[in-house]
Design a protein around this nucleic acid. Structure first.
Lengths: 147, 147
DNA sequence: CTTACTGCAAATCTTTTGCAACGTC
DNA sequence: GACGTTGCAAAAGATTTGCAGTAAG
């Protein structure tokens, strides 16, 4: 699976004239170290605080906001009351989420069947579609076993 | 398109031993009168308050919560910072949203192409899928014209 | 009559913002 | 050195909760 490197992220920031501050480096590194998770701002804060208690929560929010704007991160909401983040994949259109309504577990899967659907929807509605987001809600294997 | 009636909604509440209070009736009626919108709690409050300023915001939240639990309403998030509600359709699996990233307009469309995808995902991941949610983000016709 | 429901106000939680001090380029 | 960035604390916005009074079944 595609993964960004620390340097490529810094480059993207620099290209848009954002400064590479120590705080931003630490936050980016925390995100990279946990790239398989879908972290919330609060969770990033908790991770970062372990080694760097001086970093403020507002800085986390501001950094995540910038990364979302630069398409470094994608914002997602799983309905648990906070915005979560994941690295934007290069192949944007083939990545979705399965959310267990019982234990909250989130797993990812890839697929490109939606390409044709998108073309059709675009034609029918006149929308110029930039992105889509697909979520499946259900019970994961573990939770099914517990019934 | 499918639409619930006031009486059918009251029945669903009664079946689960919820009381049919005047406040709940007023809120349900407000939702029915605006069934094509995707109202937030605050918006329901504003509508209801016109005729019934004595009803409290907490009651709105509590009523919406019950309706969501009873599958009368579905919760949706369009990324504008609040939970929005729409009537759950009987034919659950064929109803999605197009969200304009420019003006925020939301339009709906129906489709059943996802049935086969769902079967495949279920087989591949072991998830027992209960529901799905598909959103397209893009520019609506009006906003494209303004460019 | 019992128990759920309501309104209000306070509390909570997430996210944003103002501002003075600070640090990158 | 200029201007973007930070930390802190306060503000804002959405939602939840405690509680005493009220009302549906």
């Amino acid at each position: 699976m595609y993964n960004p490197t620390f340097n490529s992220l810094c480059e993207k920031l620099q290209q848009k004239a954002y400064k590479i501050t120590p705080q931003r480096q630490i936050i980016l590194q925390a995100l990279l170290d946990n790239h398989s998770q879908h972290l919330s701002a609060e969770e990033v804060y908790a991770i970062v605080r372990e080694q760097h208690p001086e970093i403020g929560l507002a800085t986390i929010y501001r950094t995540l906001e910038i990364c979302a704007k630069l398409e470094i991160l994608h914002e997602i909401e799983f309905g648990d009351g906070c915005t979560r983040y994941e690295f934007a994949k290069e192949e944007v259109h083939r990545h979705h989420h399965l959310i267990c309504i019982n234990c909250g577990k989130v797993i990812e899967f890839d697929d490109d069947l939606l390409e044709s659907l998108e073309t059709w929807v675009s034609k029918k509605t006149g929308f110029k579609i930039a992105d889509h987001q697909l979520k499946f809600y259900g019970s994961c294997e573990d939770c099914q076993r517990q019934d």
